[in-house]
């Protein structure tokens, strides 16, 4: 059983997964951020691989990506920085980036490297399920990684079944039509959508992401799924606090309420 599956089996609810952009705020921040998040009791970490043109991201993560790239981060450098990360933490670690970077690094090479380091899964929001099944899935399965696909309020039930079938670890439930970034609350229509997915009894557990920024949105998400993913809000905390550890503490306080 993978670390991700074990987490969902053992804890199963109120799971908090946090995203950060590697190379931000400084080029070598990634190992320290992972350690701080893990020490603070976060359940899972999404290690962002910055891309120059992040289509699915709102202004906050666009900016952290762009600064990280100016700082000189690359996939090669990131893997070098986190090669001993399993000495520091045992919680699930997931890579999140865009298909073009993975393709240039070499998709198989990426999977191989991930397994060597002890990474558990991969998320590529601009790799649709059909392309994944046709070309990438055999490689992912060969290396025994989890691959997490996204579903959205626009995704039909039939397609959700297909995505669920192609996913392992968990399914990433995008809260609303939009890009990443804060929303003050999740209104009735979003909660209805969360409930609709819950009632489908997917084979994978789900986490809600996009717009989770405070206790209220975390609760609305976690009450209808296994938990939530926070990204932009953590980047904002990194900007607002003097140290990485302070940023982590401030985030946890806001989310857990």
């Amino acid at each position: 059983m993978t670390r991700i599956s074990r987490l969902f089996k053992e804890k199963g609810k109120d799971i908090l997964s946090v995203y950060f952009s590697s190379g931000y705020p400084t080029v070598d921040s990634a190992p320290r951020i992972i350690k701080a998040l893990s020490d603070a009791g976060v359940d899972m970490i999404e290690i962002g691989i910055p891309f120059s043109d992040p289509l699915a991201d709102g202004p906050v993560i666009q900016r952290s990506n762009s600064i990280a790239l100016k700082n000189g981060i690359s996939q090669k450098l990131l893997f070098e920085q986190i090669k001993d990360i399993r000495k520091v933490t045992d919680i699930p670690l997931v890579l999140m980036g865009y298909i073009n970077c993975a393709m240039q690094f070499g998709f198989e090479n990426l999977c191989k490297k991930a397994v060597e380091i002890g990474i558990d899964g991969i998320i590529l929001p601009d790799l649709p399920v059909d392309e994944y099944n046709a070309e990438y899935r055999p490689i992912v399965e060969k290396y025994g990684l989890d691959f997490i696909h996204l579903i959205t309020p626009e995704t039909s039930d039939e397609r959700i079944r297909k995505i669920d079938e192609a996913s392992s670890g968990f399914v990433y439930m995008v809260s609303s039509a939009g890009t990443t970034g804060a929303q003050n609350s999740f209104g009735q229509s979003k909660q209805d959508y969360f409930k609709r997915i819950k009632a489908m009894n997917l084979k994978n557990p789900t986490l809600v992401g996009f717009g989770v920024s405070n206790h209220e949105t975390f609760r609305a998400a976690a009450d209808n799924s296994c938990g939530a993913i926070v990204g932009s809000q953590f980047i904002k905390e990194l900007d607002a606090n003097p140290t990485i550890e302070d940023a982590v503490n401030s985030l946890i306080k806001k989310i857990k309420g």
């Binding site: 601009d126 790799l127 392309e131 696909h149 996204l150 626009e154 995704t155 397609r159 039509a177």
Partner: peptide
Amino acid sequence: GSYIPEILHKV
């Protein structure tokens, strides 16, 4: 091909 975020799949 069609490499787009899932939210745009339907449209």
